[in-house]
């Protein structure tokens, strides 16, 4: 059973426990395991783009270095954590000023130069486990369920660094849903922003952006949306009302694999 160093992230410990719990359970069932890093700190939620920002990237570098010590790939489930860690890893790989200063500050025995492979849970399902193997493990196929995959921004862009999927025509989630027996519905706004952190500053404005996604999904006959991002889920859920259910992809995965706890994870 392949072992991964797992970076759950703050949200998954609190508000997005479904994302975390089912990710672990499904992994066990599918033949890989998530070993939570012994110590980890918040990734910072957004990738610091300004050219002089070192400090906000350090927690990601520490996590990456720990995974290197374990000799394992670093896996994430939360789209935001994945985005930040993958991009910081790229900074470290590129070498430049930021990598130099981060290494000098952290003073590892050997400098960290992006050696750790950062993978998202979905990439493991696609590239390591394979959708055929997942299909074979399905116990409660999602037959007839019209599920729309919502990718948002952070898994896909910038594609040059994220290397996750085709940024304009992604397919990993649809292929997963199809393997689970559902009818995946492709809708054009699946890779457009949900409004993101704007909800904190101006909830109405964020709602406007999220509504564009929801309306587009509705027009295309989506009955349930799945996402890998807690913030996307929050924003979309707020405007979806009762029209569309918004879930984490790990929930539908667990449902199809027969691992879902009736009455919610706290029941």
């Amino acid at each position: 059973m392949k072992q991964y160093s797992y970076f759950p992230g703050c949200t998954l410990k609190e508000k997005a426990r479904e994302l975390d719990l089912y990710a672990r359970q499904c992994a066990e069932k599918l033949g890989f395991s998530l070993q939570e890093l012994p110590q980890w700190q918040c990734c910072g939620a957004v990738y610091p783009m300004a050219s002089d920002e070192i400090a906000p990237k350090l927690s990601a570098v520490r996590a990456l270095e720990k995974a290197r010590q374990q000799g394992q790939d670093l896996i994430t489930v939360c789209a935001a954590c994945h985005h930040v860690i993958k991009r910081v890893n790229d900074d470290m790989k590129q070498g430049g000023d930021i990598a130099d200063r981060a290494n000098r500050y952290l003073g590892f025995d050997t400098p960290y130069e992006g050696q750790t492979k950062v993978v998202h849970y979905l990439e493991v399902l696609r590239d390591e486990i394979g959708f055929d193997a997942i299909r074979a493990r399905v116990e409660k196929p999602l037959t007839g369920e019209k599920i729309g995959a919502y990718y948002g921004c952070m898994l896909l862009r910038p594609s040059g660094v994220m290397q996750f999927d085709d940024p304009e025509s992604p397919s990993v989630l649809e292929n997963l849903l199809a393997a689970l027996g559902a009818d995946p519905v492709e809708f054009p706004m699946r890779n457009e922003c949900c409004g993101g952190y704007r909800v904190v500053d101006d909830a109405q404005a964020a709602g406007h952006t999220a509504r564009r996604v929801i309306e587009n999904a509705l027009k295309n006959g989506v009955e349930e949306l799945v996402t890998a991002c807690p913030l996307c889920r929050y924003n979309l859920k707020k405007v979806a009302g009762g029209q569309i259910r918004v879930s984490y992809f790990t929930e539908v995965l667990a449902r199809a694999l027969g691992l879902l706890k009736e009455g919610g994870i706290n029941a």
Binding site: C10, T11, V46, G196, D201, K237
Partner: peptide
Amino acid sequence: DEMPQQALMAALRKY
């Protein structure tokens, strides 16, 4: 109740 920590963290970083 439902707002993820991620939202606050991001906003504090951005704003």
